[in-house]
Design a protein around this nucleic acid. Sequence first.
DNA 1: TGCTATGTTGAAAACGTTTTCAAGCGCAGA
DNA 2: TCTGCGCTTGAAAACGTTTTCAACATAGCA
Lengths: 336, 336
Amino acid sequence: MSSIKDVAKLAGVSISTVSRVLNETAHVSADKKERVLEAVKQLDYSPNPAARSLLLRKTGVIGVVVPFASGEFFSEFLKGVDQTASDLEYFLLISISHRSEADLRKAIRSLEKRVDGLIVWAPEMKAGEVLGLLSEATHVLLLNTYAEDGESDLVDFDNYGGMCAVVEHLVGLGHRDIAFLGGPSSAVDAKDRLRAYRDTISQSEIPPRPELEFDGDFTVEAGYAAAARIMALQPRPSAVAAANDQSAFGIIRGLLDAGLEVPSDISVTGFDDVPSSRYMYPPLTTARVPVRQMGELAVETLVDRIIENRKEPRRELVNVELVVRMSTGPPSASRS
Amino acid sequence: MSSIKDVAKLAGVSISTVSRVLNETAHVSADKKERVLEAVKQLDYSPNPAARSLLLRKTGVIGVVVPFASGEFFSEFLKGVDQTASDLEYFLLISISHRSEADLRKAIRSLEKRVDGLIVWAPEMKAGEVLGLLSEATHVLLLNTYAEDGESDLVDFDNYGGMCAVVEHLVGLGHRDIAFLGGPSSAVDAKDRLRAYRDTISQSEIPPRPELEFDGDFTVEAGYAAAARIMALQPRPSAVAAANDQSAFGIIRGLLDAGLEVPSDISVTGFDDVPSSRYMYPPLTTARVPVRQMGELAVETLVDRIIENRKEPRRELVNVELVVRMSTGPPSASRS
DNA sequence: TGCTATGTTGAAAACGTTTTCAAGCGCAGA
DNA sequence: TCTGCGCTTGAAAACGTTTTCAACATAGCA
């Protein structure tokens, strides 16, 4: 590995001059400049990032902490993040799987020293908790987190509104017995979606049936398991709203395996609109979360904060849009 | 941000002593040790990684370069990588999306200086090309790459064998007109799968029909588009083998939309066995690539090379296993 | 000619660590 | 009492950069 000294020696100049040429930080005479460039090429030299960040107090790296979320959803987000980060010349230090909350905290803390800024998606933690782990000076952007207003930079999407739209769609089709499969009750997004379900039901003047609410964890398996219990209900619901697409896939699979048809026997909805939702059988009615765009927005906002050294927190709210496909329809005539 | 000097001052010792306490690199007297530990806690001190890597010439980071692969497949891989890396106390510097080959090369090169080792999954590049970009001294592990024997550490899976098993399964069911939807022709894995298809067909003494081969790019969209062209063939194939699950999903969707049934009208197979394949309608017959395990294996092998400073290249080959589900069946009676 | 302004250059400091080296100290053995 | 050894400790060097500072040369101007 060649260092700036080697370049300087080969070019017959001081290391200051080499640095000046490479960073274009001051004018150097034409011949020396050329000699330096030639030496750089010959030695295939590039500056040592560690030395650089030690001195400049910046690393050119953004840390990303994401939950152990479902495959497609999470990878779409990362694509958005990666795309934008590489456009803005940042590297990505990523931490994905956290077996425990302690593990997650440790990951956040140990990332801090290595990055210029941190994107944290931790739906089970409050903003204050995350910020409490970190130095005042660290630039942080929180995603989809329970936060007081103005606590931190935020990118959020409208879990509540999205789920309201979904349930209203079902109600509008004539459904009255609508089951709900939730996500992990500790996560904000899951909580908001559940709240939206309950509010919409009660606003529609449908008598609440608490036994229609099921606990899940955003996985296909949970959906599959829930399907059996949903079919056993009396009277059987004519629709199920799942807290995300993954668990909706599981529900549909369970229903089909039991010989029921979707949507003619039971309508099913998801949440997220992951890419494969429109290729499912039947194509899934769901709420579209522009997760890739959120990744882009997150990086842009964070980098703006880093570069401008902005102090005032910024909050970005992205819309969630109902997408009606084939997995929902009116309740079957036989039931009404 | 507090430095080791602050700790030393607060504890009333030299920085050498602080370092010794923290790294347990030499014995220090009980009282000083305690004072140091107390000061560390009080200042919430942790060493600056940049300074450390500058001196020690190691970063504690592993670089990962992955192609713009389909959502689930790629995220499963990353989960395996992340899990193992965090167990082994490494961070992950990840580079995902590369718009061009030049972009990819740049990513590989710029990652090099920042990591202790590099995991590169670049199915469109030969091993030699990747290695040519990097210094001799860089530790590299290549995935699923076209490589001469002994060129580098390698984790590979059996594309050829897997696809042979899939096509043999179709032949065994009685299919004779089997279409094939390929991946990007520049990728090794796609090439191997195509070769397997051709070899198996010819070994089965089925007259080759080149018009049954379609170009794809591993996306659902390509699958959907191919479905239309496949249905237009005369005589219509009774089965389609897709180069991966994603494009199989697209094909199935296209067939269903056109009113055909799978598998009674046409059998469809995939490759990869991504998690949602078993929840598809119908559940997909495919070849299981243990991609998560590959991620684990890649990190383990690379870290072994880093720590042991191993020179001899190691090659790990993981098996690909046929998984028969509901998307395949015998050709319909009406056709035979 | 002498002075100043301008432009180009190198020496040296600094960033925060780890580690080598030498020194100080106490204690055991002679 | 003296020698030598082992243990603990701090000073200083080193890692590879960027940047400040001062020095020098050259040219312009009076």
